[in-house]
């Protein structure tokens, strides 16, 4: 750490303080929430009502406006947990553990959303709600990984130990995710050589991809605001016996 400039190191230490996080992010939440609502509103209405139907799938393709951002955030959430896990194990930063604890249920919710929309999409595309498609199978396994982390955190009583245990599991899991993904893709090529793929479709016109872009941004903000708000709650819960939190509670009550 001695090669890092002093200013950066101070910022790093301050960022590690749960109190600093709580006090700094308080004013962000309404702005983030409002922007997320705006982007999602415009993107979703545009995508569902005004974008032209797909040349092959007709109107059913419109579910990508929900499905794609959800599936992307499901994976990004797991990565974020693993990064927090490394920060926790290496620098013992408690805030990283609080973020990790919050990301797990949020990420699992997005994973579930991706699975549900994928399954609904399957009905008009393949004629059935569930098909062992490579992508859907990978997302299902990702959901199991999330449930494992949530189960482990719940089972271990001491929050400090639970955090480090989950960090180890998240790191092992994140190394496995690409391996799982490629093995499942490869398994599909063995069992079902030719299947419909979105990537082989011609490039989308702007009227189709701009609402998708808006929704991707909106979902990102929604994810961020959920994680920030969840982490704020987690900070208060874990620091409930410290002076600054009891003072804060007294002020709120007054």
């Amino acid at each position: 750490m001695k090669y890092i400039p002093d200013g950066l190191r101070r910022l790093w230490h301050r960022m590690g303080s749960p109190r600093w996080f709580y006090e700094t992010t308080g004013s962000w939440v309404p702005w983030l929430a409002a922007s997320a609502a705006l982007l999602l509103g415009v993107g979703t209405v545009w995508g569902l009502a005004y974008a032209p139907p797909d040349y092959l799938q007709g109107d059913s393709f419109r579910i990508i406006y929900i499905h794609v951002p959800a599936a992307y955030l499901a994976q990004a959430g797991y990565m974020l947990m693993a990064v927090c896990g490394v920060v926790l194990l290496v620098w013992r930063m408690k805030l990283a553990d609080m973020v990790m604890a919050t990301v797990a249920p949020v990420g699992a919710a997005f994973t579930f959303l991706a699975l549900a929309t994928g399954s609904i999409w399957g009905k008009p595309t393949w004629g059935t709600y569930w098909i062992w498609d490579a992508r859907i199978t990978s997302v299902l396994i990702l959901l199991f990984l999330y449930l494992g982390i949530m189960g482990l955190r719940r089972a271990i009583e001491r929050p400090e130990a639970a955090g480090r245990a989950c960090a180890i599991l998240a790191i092992v899991g994140v190394i496995n995710i690409p391996i799982i993904k490629y093995s499942v893709d490869w398994w599909m090529t063995l069992h079902q050589p030719a299947t419909f793929s979105v990537t082989s479709a011609p490039a989308m016109p702007p009227v189709m991809w701009i609402p998708l872009l808006l929704n991707v941004l909106g979902f990102n903000l929604l994810f961020a605001v959920s994680v920030i708000q969840g982490t704020r709650t987690e900070v208060l819960l874990r620091e409930r016996r410290t002076r600054w939190v009891t003072d804060l509670c007294r002020q709120e009550r007054a």
Binding site: F144, L145, G151, L152, L169, I179, I180, S183
Partner: peptide, 19 residues
């Protein structure tokens, strides 16, 4: 809980071994 933690991680081995 142990089963939930490790079975998803077993997937690549299962796929490769069966193939």
């Amino acid at each position: 809980l142990l089963a939930l933690l490790v079975l998803p991680l077993f997937v690549p081995v299962l796929i490769l071994g069966v193939s």
